[in-house]
Design a protein around this nucleic acid. Structure first.
Lengths: 245, 245
DNA sequence: CGACGGTATCAAGATTCCATCAAGAGCCTC
DNA sequence: GAGGCTCTTGATGGAATCTTGATACCGTCG
């Protein structure tokens, strides 16, 4: 069952998986680099969260190894930022062994959590797991969604209406981004609450109402008659599939 | 990004995820059962590998928790046997912390590996990870049923007649979706009521009549002479197998 | 023909769900 | 600590949906 990084799904000549390593400590970075190389993976490195996020966008890696303890920004934020537009598997790599850290990272969108000191064989095995998931679902979500005058750029985290930038609060943006990532489909109240607020808020339907209203005020031409953010009574909400006339 | 025990696109009254627990030690089984129940998961239990494998086949769980140290057979074998025909996520649960065990289990097809003593919150978080993978796969599988001018897109929860979207109430949709999932077959009153309204409504035949009439008004060309939603007098209802001329 | 079991249709409460306004709490900046 | 922004929470009216009862239909059988 074990699967080599050089797995070739009928593509080009040498398609070894590309690993993005986001890690500030040089020693560990070298260690990882050596281990990955010996298994035939190609790797790209970043030493800050900012750099990591932009690398994730530009070099479209097959898997991301992320140290939570970066100097410039919170690791969880890095996970969430990447998840806003990318489904690339993320394996978190950290010295923190606290249960709450693990839960938070996993709920933020990480696919696995390995605590230092970790063993390279185990890390590699866990990478194979997330890679074989990915092999099954090779889907690239588009990063720019346009619906009429509304434009959502998930990678740049920018929302414009008729060309003018709309400033959204963090929660407003997350809600909109979640809907945008699944544009055209209904997302249930529960799913939305869980993705935007977290697993323990699944019954706070009220939050959704307030924030959907807020988004409509900022995005819709006539907030009373939404044409973009539709409500599916008793089920949830939906961002329209196509711009309508 | 996390996924709750109950993602529900109108599939039924209360669809919480089903967890198969394969564990021989009673104490741990109880502990797991309690933890799962408090999060709203339903669970099924097996105490041997054999039993576990057959349960995995019969009750089609959403995720499997598997103890590697079963009395009757090797845990790895259980993983492999299940993987021969099923993609259901498997989280391995064991006292063995040896690196080689982990690697073997993961490479055999397990999706995660948690060592005892484990914390329930962490286990639940890891379950959410594998469940949301699964949810993504499922939501991207297109299931579209076409009968003449009627088109039912189960993934998008969208119904159109001659291209025009028909707005259905939650109950209307659930009823239609249930019929559509078993298209061609007769569903008895009892089954329909149970799937759509819940187990305690199996005698409310009246509801069915009202809602079938409603669906026919919205979907049929001539509601008085149904060509799609057929009545099987004394038995139940049926969505026609093929579009008829 | 008339009764009967099962079915279809209609419409009016009852209930649930949704949009909106607004005030208070928490947090960060200055 | 003042001010601004954001998030949480409560209250309210209104819309959509569900439930329920009354009534008409339709074929079968006595």
């Amino acid at each position: 069952m074990s699967q080599s990084p050089g797995q070739d799904l009928g593509g080009g000549p040498s398609t070894s998986a590309l690993v993005l390593v986001i890690e500030d400590e040089t020693a560990i970075r070298r260690f990882l680099h050596a281990g990955l190389e010996s298994e035939g993976y190609r790797s790209v490195e970043a030493t800050t969260g900012q750099e990591g996020i932009s690398q994730a966008a530009t070099c479209s890696p097959d898997v991301i190894l992320l140290d939570l303890g970066l100097p410039d920004m919170d690791g969880l934020t890095v996970v969430r930022r990447i998840r806003e537009w990318s489904q690339t598997p993320i394996v978190v790599l950290t010295a923190r062994e606290q249960e709450s850290d693990k839960v938070q990272a996993l709920d933020s969108g990480a696919d696995d959590y390995v605590t230092k000191p970790f063993s390279m064989p185990e890390l590699l095995a866990r990478m194979r797991v997330v890679l074989r998931h990915r092999a099954r679902v090779e889907s690239e979500t588009e990063t720019v969604i346009v619906r009429g005058t509304l434009r959502i750029d998930l990678a740049r985290r920018r929302v414009t209406v008729e060309g003018a930038t709309v400033t959204l609060t963090p929660l407003e943006y997350r809600l909109l981004a979640t809907l945008a990532r699944h544009a055209g489909r209904v997302l249930t109240h529960k799913v939305l609450l869980q993705e935007v607020w977290g697993p323990s808020y699944t019954s706070q339907h009220h939050y959704l109402r307030v924030y959907m209203a807020q988004l409509r005020i900022k995005l819709e031409v006539d907030p009373g008659r939404p044409r973009l953010l539709m409500t599916e009574t008793g089920v949830g909400y939906r961002l329209v599939e196509e711009a309508e006339g």
